[in-house]
Design a protein around this nucleic acid. Sequence first.
DNA 1: GTATCATGTTATATAACCTAACATATATTC
DNA 2: GAATATATGTTAGGTTATATAACATGATAC
Lengths: 111, 111
Amino acid sequence: MSERELRRNLAILPIGTIRELTLLTDRQIRYYEQNELISPTRGKGGQRRFSLNDVDRLLEIKDFLDAGDSIKDIQEIFAKQRRKAVGKQDSESALRRSLQKEFAQIGRFDR
Amino acid sequence: MSERELRRNLAILPIGTIRELTLLTDRQIRYYEQNELISPTRGKGGQRRFSLNDVDRLLEIKDFLDAGDSIKDIQEIFAKQRRKAVGKQDSESALRRSLQKEFAQIGRFDR
DNA sequence: GTATCATGTTATATAACCTAACATATATTC
DNA sequence: GAATATATGTTAGGTTATATAACATGATAC
């Protein structure tokens, strides 16, 4: 994972900021968490900490709901996205492995 | 100014997050603000909101202090940096105007 | 027309943050 | 070396933000 992706996944934002950035209510944000559409971490005192990715995801949720999708629909959409991402990851690591083989091959020429 | 720079200037982080990211104490952070080394905005209820740039700047301050510079030294260092940035800034006045619009937008969240 | 869904609202408790004041160790100045 | 300045610690008291849980409600689906 790139440094940029790491940064986007840093859970550093309190719910108040999320409320302002997404124009959702606390109630909505917590309800979506309850339905596992987002998974903010918790700070020392038990308060939620969100990442910039959570912001994106909440804006997506908003759009889907506006478009008439239900929470369950959105759960499935996200599940599909995850499955796709896993495939990508797999094919990437396969690619990396085959590249390593190639380089190992090439490396031999250098001896 | 790029969208990325805009994002870095978004004041969205509470002091607790800053404390964790910089390993400074609240006291230090507020003291540096008092000495105008940083200028966090305030949310509706009067609490400080910091940007990612503030985090960078605080880490710089930390380094300068560790290196033996005084607060006043650092004020001057930052003042010099600003003067250097002025020429650049002038050539970006149109973009600055759009930045102000963005901040006005953000300000609205606090009402 | 009843059940479900997404959200609003309210109450109550805890956590986070605020300012201001006083304390202190270290370095600086006279 | 006593007085001053600097950067930070600590404490107190008050306010704001967030937490959970429960009950309420308009809209939609069946």
